[in-house]
Amino acid sequence: MSELNKNIAEYALRIGDTSLILGQRLAEWCGHGPILEEDIALTNISLDLIGQSRAFLTYAGEKEGNGRSEDDLAFFREARTFKNRLMAEQPNGDYAQTMIRQLFLSVYQYYFYTELMKSKDETFAALAEKSLKEVTYHVRHSSEWTIRFGDGTEESHVRTLEAVDTL
């Protein structure tokens, strides 16, 4: 494996891991959301993220050149070898913590994918372009909730501050 391919594989794995872990966390909410509409909305975000991770993990496997599939990478690695942003794996907590985590990571991903679109690697650029559309909506969704929590009730305000402190 060339040094370049090795580096690309490593980089793709990092991106894919963050999406995978965050998507997995959000999936834990499925069936337990605060209202049906929100249950559906959060699942949409989770599905976007799992889709992103599949694409990046597949690419990582290709570049690695050892015939590992998205599933080999997702299911047959030790927990310690995951390279996700630590923020993504923080527990769901209450809905404020889930939303603030989402806001932070979605904004991060927004700027990240915006830059990745300029990559000389065509696959990265294409995946970034597709992901950016999804993430733009995630930013909108989590921002709207953050505004409502911050300026909603006393309780929602306190919970949101705590979430920001925790994260």
Binding site: H32, P34, E38, D94, R148, F149, G152, E155, S156, R159
Partner: peptide
């Protein structure tokens, strides 16, 4: 657990 979320939005 969702009551405060719905109420905050209200």
């Amino acid at each position: 657990n969702g009551a405060w979320v719905r109420e905050a939005a209200n």
